[in-house]
Design a protein around this nucleic acid. Sequence first.
RNA 1: UCAGUCGGCCGGACGGCCGCUCCGGCAAGUGCCGAAAGGCCGCCGGGGAGGAAAGUCCGGGCUCCAUCGACAUACGGUGCCGGAUAACGUCCGGCGGGGGCGACCCCAGGGAAAGUGCCACAGAGAACGAACCGCCUCGCCUUUCGGGGCGCGGUAAGGGUGAAAAGGUGCGGUAAGAGCGCACCGCGUCGCCGGCAACGGGGACGGCAUGGUAAACCCCACCGGGAGCAAAACCGAAUAGGGACGGCAUCGCGGAUAGUUCGCUCCUCGGGGCGAUAACUCCGCAGGGUGAUGUCAAACCCGCCGUCCGGGUAGGUUGCUCGAGGCGCUGUGCAAACAGCGUCCCAGAGGAAUGGCCGUCGCGCACCGCCUCCGCAAGGAAGCGGUGCCCUCCAGAACCCGGCUUACAGGCCGGCUGAUACU
Length: 113
Amino acid sequence: MERLRQRADFIAVAGGLRINGPAFVLQSLRREDQGPIRVGFTVTKKIGTATERNRIRRRLRELVKRTDRGFLLPHSDYVLVGRRAALSRDFAVMLGDLRSALERLSRRSPKPA
RNA sequence: UCAGUCGGCCGGACGGCCGCUCCGGCAAGUGCCGAAAGGCCGCCGGGGAGGAAAGUCCGGGCUCCAUCGACAUACGGUGCCGGAUAACGUCCGGCGGGGGCGACCCCAGGGAAAGUGCCACAGAGAACGAACCGCCUCGCCUUUCGGGGCGCGGUAAGGGUGAAAAGGUGCGGUAAGAGCGCACCGCGUCGCCGGCAACGGGGACGGCAUGGUAAACCCCACCGGGAGCAAAACCGAAUAGGGACGGCAUCGCGGAUAGUUCGCUCCUCGGGGCGAUAACUCCGCAGGGUGAUGUCAAACCCGCCGUCCGGGUAGGUUGCUCGAGGCGCUGUGCAAACAGCGUCCCAGAGGAAUGGCCGUCGCGCACCGCCUCCGCAAGGAAGCGGUGCCCUCCAGAACCCGGCUUACAGGCCGGCUGAUACU
């Protein structure tokens, strides 16, 4: 699993499917290549100060790390957009949020050809 | 002990599990991603946010802008004196003014007798020095003989207005008054003494002439070229712009040279010699362009269209952390600081690492119980134990230093001042 870094990739994923949650918004896009799963994080400036944005990004990163790789589709890009609730929401509850969001996403996404 | 003031420091600790990033070492396949540049993948060891990393307000280093110059103008900044410093609007030590019983704190602290402007309201009057009321002499009229009215003058003592009223206080003086005279204070001028200086002390003279405002214009002195690591250098896709070739167009003037081309000639067939030739080379002059502006100096640059090669964007790499560096000791200095010696290497990300989850402890707060003391009581204080909450403030390096400013739960240490108590 790799980290998403290029601006162009983020813009591409923003055009894909999206699931809203209380602590984050999950965006996803299936790429037409054989590359690895890539995950990116977005926390905009209006969310809070630099310290708060750092904490949100770290907690979101930890969520992805703790989630079973089987929930993620191969050759896909994911972007987690942080919300302010991610600062204080119970970690175990957020873990459940991410899992159910990924399940909903895999039901909605078209089956690979 | 309480109240205050100044300075310095800390701003959770330990452990478990799972990670991130950089450096060093070892290992590594001809592995994976990418067109390329380049990046990624294993194991071991080590490093990994702050007191403000913040605001981006000053000062530098560094980089580029034309080699960054000179003079002037404009603009901006600074503004008591001396010192520290790479530099500063910073710091230290003084001076002056103001506040506080005091320790101590505060000050945008040059020039208002160069000029211009402004000074609302109130008030007679707010500046080429002012008579509203009042006070006083004199003249005239009047009188109930106390005085009253009118007029020419004198007057800044009193009233009133104001933030501010033309030096202040006192005595003398006078018709009433007045620096009119005198004393003290203030102000000004000129010597003297102390101090590097800001300034302080004291003397003589002047008889008051100079209202305030320069965070109003302005004057004076000093300082400042601009942009910034998204600087900049290197490597490099796609699409628009430069060199070679071909064509078209134009010759600013003068000069030099001959790689090129042409002619003649020699020859060992590689080439050589002589002459000519510049719309392509070089130089000078002229023109135009290139800093905020002007002048000067110096430098650089100078048509259009088709085919082959070099620069720039996306991207990548470097810049990127050893530095006006930290700590300790010694010396100099009142101090800021400087010097010498020793010692240490201490974050380097780039959609942005330095963390996530949990436990124990600690701190703080609340409640309950026990016990001691004070109190008639309600209750209060200290200690011990338990439970719960909060499990920590402001805040996240973005090229690097020196400052300033602003934000900050809680806590520790030291100096000094005042009050109270005790010895």
